[in-house]
């Protein structure tokens, strides 16, 4: 099963919409709640990253009988130093974003913790692509 969602940069009011749709689908497929939770956490963080940092993004989802694969590709400033971005507590979020309770530098670590594989690629000045997989068993 394939799904695709557009994510608008800067639009916090819609943040979480795509993650929520994927969660509903996984529930209908009777995926165990603990697995759905891991996927929901990872996708929400990825979605918020696009909203907080990029201009626009696309979330592509493929659900197989054994796992879920998700790619979140954005057009945006990119990440100059991925190792630094992966550090817990490191964030480049604006003051406005931090006041909303985002930008704690926990997003990418949360994605890493809740997925079975995670690949992050970025071209500064062009954008960032994140690919994650979560196994169902």
């Amino acid at each position: 099963m394939k799904m695709q969602f557009d994510i608008a940069g800067g639009d916090f009011s819609a943040a979480g919409g795509a993650s929520s749709e994927v969660k509903k689908t996984l529930k209908q497929l009777n995926i165990p709640p603990a697995t759905i939770r891991r996927i929901a956490v990872a996708l929400y963080e990825a979605e918020v990253n696009v909203v907080a940092h990029a201009y626009s993004g696309v979330m592509s989802v493929e659900i197989s009988p054994t796992n879920i694969w998700v790619q979140i590709a954005d057009k945006g400033p990119g990440i100059p130093n991925i190792d630094k971005a992966m550090e817990e507590g490191f964030s480049t979020a604006s003051d406005h974003v931090r006041q909303m309770g985002f930008g704690a530098g926990m997003g990418l670590p949360n994605i890493k913790k809740n997925t079975d594989s995670m690949e992050l690629k970025s071209v500064p000045g062009e954008g960032t692509t994140l690919e994650i997989t979560v196994n169902f068993n």
């Binding site: 009011s13 943040a15 909303m100």
Partner: peptide, 17 residues
């Protein structure tokens, strides 16, 4: 328990039940 009052708290609460 939070002092955040904007819309995004709804998505968080819903996603993790």
């Amino acid at each position: 328990v939070t002092s955040q009052i904007h819309k995004n708290i709804v998505a968080v609460a819903s996603l993790i039940d």
